[in-house]
Design a protein around this nucleic acid. Sequence first.
DNA 1: CTGTTAGCGCTTTCAT
DNA 2: ATGAAAGCGCTAACAG
Lengths: 332, 332
Amino acid sequence: MSTISDVAKLAKVSVSTVSRVISGKGYVSKETQKKVLQAAQELAYSPNLIARNLQSGKTQTIGFITNSPLGFPNSFLGTFIAIANLHDYYVTLYFTNGDKNKEIDVLNQMKHRQLDGIFVFNRSNEWSVFESYTAYGPIATRYRINSKQIYSSHIDHYPIYLASLNYLYQQGYKKIAHSMGNPENRNTKARIKAINSFYQGNGLLLNVDWLFCETSTENNGNQLAHWFHHATDKPEALACHSDSIAVEFISELQNLGYNVPRDVAVIGFDNSDISRLMHVTTVDYSANLQAENSFVHLYNQLNNTNIPQHHLEYKLIERKTTPKINDYIEQD
Amino acid sequence: MSTISDVAKLAKVSVSTVSRVISGKGYVSKETQKKVLQAAQELAYSPNLIARNLQSGKTQTIGFITNSPLGFPNSFLGTFIAIANLHDYYVTLYFTNGDKNKEIDVLNQMKHRQLDGIFVFNRSNEWSVFESYTAYGPIATRYRINSKQIYSSHIDHYPIYLASLNYLYQQGYKKIAHSMGNPENRNTKARIKAINSFYQGNGLLLNVDWLFCETSTENNGNQLAHWFHHATDKPEALACHSDSIAVEFISELQNLGYNVPRDVAVIGFDNSDISRLMHVTTVDYSANLQAENSFVHLYNQLNNTNIPQHHLEYKLIERKTTPKINDYIEQD
DNA sequence: CTGTTAGCGCTTTCAT
DNA sequence: ATGAAAGCGCTAACAG
């Protein structure tokens, strides 16, 4: 494995000259450049990026923290990586399975300069923990949080969720159960606000027993299906805060002998592949732009640039799980 | 950002002593250790891993190459990362979208010592290209290939596919279409061999028009659905080489007004989450063990260890898309 | 048990 | 336009 000084020797120039032609910085005469390139070629020289990184103090690597591979963040992650690669950044993926310590390990990677920045797709620790690490590098998330130190590319869930509920209402559903995230999340709070507006606005009575907040993400859709199975008073529709909950719910319900939407309508959230495959009505909220915004922010912080952010929009994607009530026709 | 020599100064010892206590290697007296730790604490010192990497020439990072985020390799990837993290390795994910150059870029990352090893989940370039890079580090894949240089944790698809076909036969399906991978893959060849055995063994006639080999992974299930829609002579069952093809096929068929399994039975391959959610009969072939084997091999190569590999088994997972023919009962 | 010293491979002033 | 030399922060002989 040849080094820069091997090349220098062979080309009979100094290491700094070689460095200049390899990195393309600084003045080098055409002739010496040619000599160097030839020597480099001959020795099959390739620069050691670790040494470069030590010099620059950067690794060009962003850490991506997510709970588990089961959350179907595929498209988001794909976009994030694509845009990162476009800017010569790489992304290292960490599955924490909700383990706070694993999350801390990742944050420490940044502290140890192994990571230039971090994106938080899921989190287990308090935001204050993340904030304390912003001293070592930029952190971004998709959650809607109120922090000066952590960037958040989010979209207000209030109008979106209100639109979802109004849509369900318009389709004839009045008895609606709600599956929501961590009650401390601002997204969840926005949804609760939307729920209140909705029920008051339509003169409906909110059944508090039909308000589910997530404690552990694990199998939540599954549990909801069993809850539905045993409930004496069943809702006409379930509004979910993620497609993954929605499809787990539907799938398990099918195992229990139910039919969606005949027995209950379902609306998801994310417009993920899985919702498309399973024909679940959902909401698209420009997750790809959100991913792009997140990376761009990290990039801007890291490089003192000012690439502009995209504005996020949402759109209801109507599929088969929310027909007009009582309109369901047995598929043939 | 304090360095090891800052700590050394404050603790009034040499850098090597500090290095010893931080890395836990070599003899240090309890007292000096305490002094050093205290100084480190005071300065909020944390080791710069890049420097360590330069010293060791390693990054503790494995590159994971995959085509696109749409192939549902979630569980495999999750296992791979989990086992890697357990061994203090990290994994950087690359989506190539079938772009050969992007694949080469990743290989060059290893050449530049940014990556200690590479796992190939999908590939676009010839294997010989990959082989030429094994000079720079170990490469592993899940494909069944014949290479001394690239490790492959695979399972023979011949008996598996034969078992799938026999199962379909036993369920009463005799008109079977086949969706397969790249005809140059040895897995595909094994499947073709299984097909021949099957048709000959059962005295059936193989319809060559029902043999689909994949050129581009994109939307293959989709295309198959449209093919089915327009075919005058339709098969009774489709056997797929991946769950992702199977579910895309089913989903698009549903869009076209068909019903699976009433109109056509489907068997997948992978036992992925998506097949579970959509109740697709599939084959489990210990993909998680395959992921583990792959990492373990890379680890063994990198560390001159000899952690043993797992033996891969397969198991047919019977779900709802392959009932006894003509036994389909409209779900209620 | 601890300190000195020489790198790891590259970039970057600062001279010339 | 090119070279010498000083690091980047850490590890690992080697000496004592």
